[in-house]
Amino acid sequence: MPTQINVNGAMHSVDVDDDTPLLWVLRDVVGLTGTKFGCGVALCGACTVHIDGVPRRSCITTVGSIGNASIRTIETLDANPIGKALQKAWLDLEVVQCGYCQSGQLMSAAALLAGNPKPSDADIDTVMSGNICRCGTYGRIRSAIKQAANQLGSSQESA
């Protein structure tokens, strides 16, 4: 029997075994390829998505464990102010090189700012060390997270 999953606000019926990782359901069945495969064992963070707002490594999250939870992927990161601010900061500071890990970096960063609007360097280290970048964009990621945090902070104050 097909499983129903809620991805980016739309229901999808996917006919796969319950032990299938969400990553492959998103990429191969639903056709959302923004979420990336990097290691398959939760070591690199490239596959990070949000499930009910919690950052999850989709490569080891089985589709059968999700139930009615709401899945958010990089494709709708701009649906909230944090995502928008991060994308802007990423482009302003030219964070990206090859870009393959950046979907996961951005999803982790969005979870970071959602839980901690003013992260310190140590806070950034703790959360973002789960995401590997082989192009070495770490320094710019750090700066971009801070820029986004500042922008969000000041827009909140002015609101």
Binding site: L32, T33, G34, T35, T73, I74, E75, L77, D78, L86, Q87, W90, L91, E94, V95, V96, G99, Q102, S103, L106
Partner: peptide, 9 residues
Amino acid sequence: DTPDKVNGR
């Protein structure tokens, strides 16, 4: 190349 690399496209 980067605008499409921050939105999954």
